[in-house]
């Protein structure tokens, strides 16, 4: 436990030092929320029970933040650490593997928690959004972010080199965010795109968040969504556990 606490402190410091991570996974979702909210925040969305667009957007942006931080940020950072040999070097020390991985996941979740707090605060103060059921909302976001970190670990094990990692990650998480209605209501999307989105976990995270924050439901009212998200997370964790590598690809 002493080792874990030490590693968690170190990882938090490392995380806070990385400008790339801070920008892409922390600032960018906030900036997107600010920009999109400024463009159409005061509209009403007829297809979605006439809710205010700012409220609707906040849920999408929280989902986007979860995938950006837990999935994209984590996997890019880990691939770089693996390919530069840092993970291999850590394996030569008496630090247990679990302590390293768990500290890294906790760091990612803490970063996302801060981001979610900033996002909700920005919504309240600037766009006058209403967020209900903060406890349930917190649980839903934790579940979503945890599932994305597991998927991020799984993706890390599938990416071969540091050079291509950010391209691969961006090519996955940006279209997924778009399809899942993080930026706009997917109501007018063609059926084929909707079908793809419905096979992916982010749709369920955003829907769960929206139902809790806007429609006054609790996380336990939506067991179906919770099950889909948890199943994706579990699948990610299984792939990660089987395929995770500490050593760089052989040159």
């Amino acid at each position: 436990m002493r080792l874990f606490r030490h590693e968690l402190r170190s990882q938090l410091r490392l995380y806070s030092r990385s400008r790339e991570l801070a920008f892409f996974t922390f600032a960018l979702p906030l900036i997107m929320f600010f920009l999109l909210g400024s463009v159409y925040g005061n509209d009403r969305i007829k297809s979605e029970q006439n809710v205010r667009a700012a409220d609707y957007l906040l849920a999408g942006m929280l989902g986007y933040g979860a995938i950006a931080t837990g999935f994209a940020g984590l996997s890019i950072m880990l691939v770089i650490r693996r390919e530069s040999g840092i993970l291999k070097r850590v394996r030569a020390t008496p630090l247990p593997a679990w302590a390293y991985v768990v500290a890294l996941l906790c760091t990612t979740l803490i970063a996302f928690a801060l981001e979610a707090i900033c996002m909700v605060a920005l919504g309240r103060l600037y766009f006058h959004t209403h967020t209900h059921n903060l406890f349930s909302l917190g649980l839903a976001l934790l579940l979503g972010a945890a599932a994305f970190t597991a998927l991020g670990l799984a993706l890390t094990s599938l990416i071969r080199s540091a050079e291509g990692s950010s391209a691969v990650v961006n090519a996955i998480y940006l279209p997924v965010s778009f399809l899942s209605g993080a930026f706009f209501s997917p109501h007018s999307f063609p059926a084929a795109l909707k079908a793809i989105a419905n096979a992916l976990p982010l749709v369920y995270v955003i829907r769960l968040v929206r139902d809790i924050a806007l429609h006054n439901q609790q996380i336990w009212d939506r067991p179906g969504d919770v099950a889909v998200i948890a199943a994706w997370g579990l699948a990610g964790a299984i792939v990660a556990a089987r395929r995770f590598r500490w050593e760089p690809q052989e040159g």
Partner: peptide, 13 residues
Amino acid sequence: GVVLQSSAVYENL
């Protein structure tokens, strides 16, 4: 103690 063939250090520390 191990020194690997290529340097591996955290850039931001």
